[in-house]
Write a protein that binds this DNA or RNA. Structure first.
Lengths: 337, 337
DNA sequence: AGGATTTTGAGGTGCGTGCCTCAGAAATTT
DNA sequence: AAATTTCTGAGGCACGCACCTCAAAATCCT
């Protein structure tokens, strides 16, 4: 039988009340006594029964995902997974909800965050740009006792939930190189905005592989769509007209829907190797039809569950299983969808 | 607040005792009453609080993994994940242990299974060949009230935990074709034994892609190693001597360690495309060194956790999140390790 | 209708922990 | 030494459910 708090109290030579005070970090216990309890914990191998603990706490866990209001297909996938998790989690007394942040106005986003209280939230996974206001708001949330973890969009902290975008870019680069084989020519790189750290890092990784290992390939300057179909069509038309040796397309942004549609319409993918990011209905269909060769993906379900596990571990002051929380850079082709 | 059994009793117009009888499938309740309770469950949206239930049950969950005693590096990975899970699961009152099966003697394996009692096991994930004895033993286990799920090695049931090996073979085939580009020639396919369903299916998938879409490539008859280094070296030497146009190697078995070592020693991988299965220390090192081009992988941690989730859902008579339980066919290259 | 049988209700206990109160003990200060 | 202040112990209630007992009610059979 596993040792209980009762056993622990006996082993430490203190009462249940004191054990409770130490375990839950309440004030008013002499250091000597705290040490004695911690000693006993190690000695008898006590481990708090989380099942009983959550039941007794009355209140399970309530986690939030702070996400930009506007999102494309990939964001929809994430939202679906959050809802799915919330539904399945109710039996285990964990809830997950979405908190929309204004992605145009960091100031308002920060205010939204600062309104969150520890009363109705135990932890928050945050996808937001790194402005000073937001950084401050997050810091204050922490001080209020809300656990946080950066989500998908890179905040370069450790404990970040998401893929290493540099490695993802390198993966795309390697596939591009191998798929092209001995073919030589130019590669178009397209993204929504070069301002985002994600795009930057992907491009860095992509470049490092292509430039070092495939001297017959050269990557053109990154084109920006700003999420606008008109502009996407314009820049694609221009680049196709300007270069007659384009052999590959690298769609770096998270929202490949529009670029794929337009590229197909312009017949830009024919006889070229196209690689995109994130599995969505659009990229999946394009893979099946052979319009694109591969998709670099991060599993949204895994992202969501991982974020929750990390937040929960923080709440319970536990360690996490690092191996389980490393988000894989997945390579998808038509055959392993 | 979520409805409790008390609310359910009131809504159904019965007592707590009857609610308990219905919820836990105990005998001695009229069909009419059972229906009334189930009706009320749907009406008020009752959902059993699993936290409280497991606590009250006293005994958490005890799951087992029935695995062959002899295993290579990939099996070691799985064992590590099981141990890891067991350690982390204790706080949630779930245990996981390994039950070794004699893989040479199905009769003894069946006996091992038949000795397991529902007293000390709630569910079992089984990796075993499909012999009549074992099939019977599994059937009897089920009748004794132990939940089961086929594990990794294909038992072609639904609810099977593992990848679709035909698709995995097709994935390998597509990568082989794309990586070779316009290169033409012969491909060596190597496995431990062609008797295993896994190998068969992988070969089928591999063939279907290569034969239909890469007419310049031809796949040689599958070579068998029987797990023996000497034999591996022999068949590899022979095939290399017999054909001067070998451009690719497909290592279909789960144990790529020996084949990779020997292929490297024979310089068989140089200027050829090699694809193997399962990430292990060996295949990982070979990827980094460029000896092999890609690894088709299934995540052992995911396999273990998925098996446990499925078994648990069966124990609790719940539905599972299918999306979460589909084991992905992962493609690994040096850049996304 | 009567007895035998099946079905239901009322109530209790316990799981391991969180959280609360209050009195008494121990350490510290005056 | 007395008066504070700081720690500690004993105890109880609660969480939502499983599991148990025993008697009462409903249904069945002859």
């Amino acid at each position: 039988m596993r040792p209980t708090t009762r056993d622990l109290a006996k082993a430490a030579g203190v009462s249940l009340a004191t054990v409770d005070r130490v375990l839950n970090g309440r004030a008013g216990v002499r250091k000597k006594t705290v040490d004695a309890v911690n000693d006993a914990i190690r000695r008898i191998g006590f481990e708090r029964n989380q099942i009983a603990a959550t039941l007794a706490r009355q209140r399970g866990y309530r986690f939030g995902f702070a996400l930009p209001r506007s999102g494309g297909e990939f964001m929809e996938e994430i939202l679906d997974r959050i809802r799915e998790f919330d539904k399945a989690g109710r039996a285990e007394m964990v809830e997950a909800r979405v908190i929309h942040l204004d992605d145009q106005n960091p100031h308002r986003a920060a205010r939204t965050l600062s309104r969150l209280s520890a009363e109705d939230l135990d932890g928050l996974a945050i996808m937001a740009p790194e402005t000073p206001q937001i950084r401050d708001a997050i810091q204050r949330m922490r001080e209020r006792g809300i656990q946080t973890v950066p989500f998908v969009s890179n905040q370069q902290e450790d404990g970040f939930v998401g893929i290493d975008n540099r490695a993802a870019g390198a993966t795309a680069g390697r596939l591009m190189g191998r798929f092209l084989g001995s073919v030589q020519g130019a590669i178009v790189a397209l993204t929504e905005t070069t301002q985002s750290r994600d795009s930057l890092e992907r491009r860095l990784g992509f470049d490092s592989v292509i430039n070092h290992e495939y001297p017959g390939l050269r990557i053109l300057p990154t084109l920006e769509t700003h999420g606008d179909p008109g502009r996407t069509e314009l820049v694609l038309r221009n680049v196709l007209a300007a270069h007659d040796d384009i052999v590959g397309l690298y769609l770096m942004g998270a929202e490949a829907h529009t670029p794929i549609d337009i590229a197909r319409h312009l017949q830009a993918t024919e006889n070229r190797v196209t690689i995109a990011h994130e599995r969505t209905p659009s990229t999946e269909a394009a893979l099946r039809q052979g319009d694109i060769a591969a998709v670099i993906h991060q599993d949204p379900g895994h992202l969501v569950r991982s974020a929750v596990r990390i937040l929960r571990a923080k709440c319970e002051n536990r360690a996490i299983l690092a191996s389980q929380e490393r988000i894989r850079i997945e390579i998808l082709i038509a055959e392993n969808l």
